[in-house]
Nucleic acid binder design. Structure first.
Lengths: 242, 242
DNA sequence: CGGACGGTTGACTGAACTCAAATGGCGTGG
DNA sequence: CCACGCCATTTGAGTTCAGTCAACCGTCCG
């Protein structure tokens, strides 16, 4: 089952036939392994392939001139790096492996071939990019108009749903292989303040942390406190687990 | 010249033939006028057309539960509302007219027809959505990793370039029909603090404000202070004016 | 065993927010 | 043409949330 996550992610948006599922399986022409903290795509690079994360976590990030780093997206198993990036432009930011990753490389024309053949996949790819944008917008709301506490709570809610989609969250419990520094760079906070907010989340009983495992004892409560409404993730059906 | 801005915007990304330019002219099936502060597309709506701003300014915005408002994008003349939105999903945010607007409505199949016929336009549309995403990422960097002063300076730099593209900035001077409240909602700040930062920008001599007219006496200096690098806007050619 | 890395905590600082009041421009209607 | 109200801008004073700096701890791994 090499592309399990990819199929599951796409099926969050569109029901696929057996043929369409196997079409997805033929997409990757090559598979790379990228070690933790190494670049999957570097800033300034001109990508020749579309990439998809098959295993592990990655992060888009931009650096600013006074040494600051901002993570602008997390890529989970099943997520495309940039489905329309090929031959278009130079990367204005980098994508780095947060954990060791298995990354699939897709020929540009393979995407065209598959989408021409199966409109459902075209739809699913489009919707997937629309959702990526919606996530960016929610991060903006979190950054400027939510408290640090809500910001992090909202991020956890988002990760919870997205991990659910690819079966990486069982019983509202999942692995978050991020350092508090990573979370801070994603939320626009310092790692010290992330630590304080995580403590508060623990003390208020809305999350439980053991190492990099996070459990959410009361999903509704966390979502209420986070001002989280999963609508923006545009899931196909209201999955009872998500 | 009804769609001047649209042609100019697209030509920032791809050189067009006369045929392609006139193909753009046939896109809109209908033109609406939307008054200032009225919705162009409302949250919860299921759009049946793609929309393009032909005249005036609009803003994407999301509201959160404690009354906060966050603008996540400004739409300038020539900008599409959402080129892939049709029939895909319910809007998870609204688009509001910042000034009186002329908005073009485009049938979904008109987009398909035009892009099938002219690959250059397909390219240009894709690149345009990639740039929209890049702008979102830069706003995230501004929000969490730049000072309020830099945040606003960066926004002004962005608007300057984008207005240049559609010939709405002559001699580094342009109209910004935003209230300080609007700017605050876009930058993730309060209008009071926006006011203070604008004063500082004025006092430091990097901008001049007269009503809603803004002049930038020294573009390089403003960009240096803002940590602004226009690379992320992926312009086709380094236009000396931008 | 020792060093590196990540997490945790405390004391202090400061940037941005809040609240409040005053100012100024502009359109409308008397 | 003035008076009025509305809206946006401007400024000050006080507050607070998140950042900074620094120390310490725990654990993993070479």
């Amino acid at each position: 089952m090499p592309h399990q996550a990819l199929v599951r992610k796409i099926e969050a948006f569109e029901t696929l036939s057996e043929d369409e599922r196997s079409a997805l399986g033929t997409l990757c022409s090559e598979i790379h392994h990228v070690g933790r903290r190494h670049d999957i795509v570097s800033e300034g690079e001109r990508p020749t392939h579309v990439r998809v994360v098959l295993d592990g976590w990655a992060a888009r990030h931009a650096l600013n001139d006074d040494g600051g780093r901002r993570i602008t997206a997390f890529l989970l198993p099943g997520d495309f790096c940039d489905i329309h990036i090929t031959s278009l432009a130079v990367m204005d930011h980098g994508i780095v492996a947060v954990t060791d990753c298995r990354v699939g490389l897709i020929e540009e024309e393979a995407i065209e071939r598959v989408t021409r053949a199966t409109p459902a996949l075209t739809m699913a790819f489009w919707r997937s990019t629309l959702v990526d944008e919606a996530i960016l917008r929610q991060w903006l709301v979190s950054s400027g108009r939510r408290s640090a506490y809500q910001n992090i709570a909202h991020l956890l809610c988002e990760l919870h749903v997205r991990l659910c989609l690819v079966h990486l969250a069982e019983n509202d419990c999942f692995t978050v292989p991020l350092t508090q520094e990573d979370i801070g760079d994603a939320a626009g906070l310092t790692s010290v303040h992330v630590n304080r907010m995580l403590r508060e989340l623990r003390e208020r009983g809305v999350i439980e942390i053991k190492g990099s495992e996070i459990a959410i004892p009361d999903v509704a409560k966390l979502r209420r406190e986070a001002d989280f409404d999963p609508k923006y993730l545009h899931l196909r059906r209201p999955d009872p687990r998500c």
